[in-house]
């Protein structure tokens, strides 16, 4: 279990362009941090660097366990972290039900958590439909349901609210609050303020 995340003096480039330098942040159990900054400043890249998909030019990402010991970063990422962004990994030609079940299998979600996820995001009316016919908001709900179907302590969210309507924003806010109350952590890139108490980390080039 990850109980704290430390990002120290992280520098990231895309191609020849340096996005940002010396970015640090701390996240402890039960906390949420919102990454803010202009378009293209590197919010998504920072999330991908924390997830280990992107190798930073300099700086470190450290995961600490509940007992205060530093965790092996590969294991911590593989077992204790969710990344949810614009690219949701859903195949348009498959049924919502099949895609939900596949990703729940992939992340190792137990049956009772899957049922809770389906209820929380009210997926039942969508399950029989092809992903292709879902609206952007419905598709986001289907993707976000993974967070609930396979509980993991650290959520990395990229613009989680963007396509959701007011009702589903409040549902997601409740899910996020419950996750924090359970000792989870949220690192979210967003332009609109997150609907939960959080610190704001400004990223600047």
């Amino acid at each position: 279990m990850i109980a704290a995340l430390a990002v120290d003096r992280l520098s990231i480039s895309r191609g020849v362009r340096r996005l940002f330098e010396g970015q640090s942040l701390r996240l402890a159990a039960g906390e949420a941090v919102m990454l803010s900054g202009a378009n293209g400043v590197g919010k998504t890249s920072l999330l991908r660097a924390v997830a280990g998909l992107l190798r930073p030019d300099a700086g470190t990402v450290t995961f600490t366990g509940a007992d205060g010991a530093t965790l092996d970063p590969d294991e911590a990422r593989a077992d204790h972290l969710h990344l949810a962004g614009h690219h949701d990994g859903l195949k348009t030609q498959r049924r919502a039900e099949e895609e939900f079940a596949f990703w729940a299998d992939w992340f190792g979600g137990a049956a009772e958590h899957r049922a809770a996820a389906i209820d929380a995001f009210d997926l039942r009316p969508l399950l029989a439909l092809d992903v292709r016919v879902l609206s952007a908001g419905q598709r986001r709900r289907l993707a976000l349901a993974r967070l609930r179907a396979a509980p993991r302590p650290l959520w990395l969210l990229d613009e989680p609210l963007a396509p959701l309507d007011a009702h589903w924003r409040s549902v997601l806010a409740a899910e996020m609050s419950a996750h924090l109350a359970r000792g989870g952590m949220i690192l979210a890139a967003a332009h609109d303020p997150l609907p939960i108490p959080c610190r704001v980390a400004e990223i600047a080039a």
Binding site: R48, A51, G52, L53, R77, A78, D79, L81, L83, G85, H86, H87, D88, G89, L90, K91, W103, W106, F107, G108
Partner: peptide, 16 residues
């Protein structure tokens, strides 16, 4: 390619 385009490859690399 399909997984690369729809972001599924990120999740295959990341977890599981």
């Amino acid at each position: 390619e399909r997984d690369f385009e729809d972001g599924g490859l990120d999740l295959l690399v990341l977890a599981g």
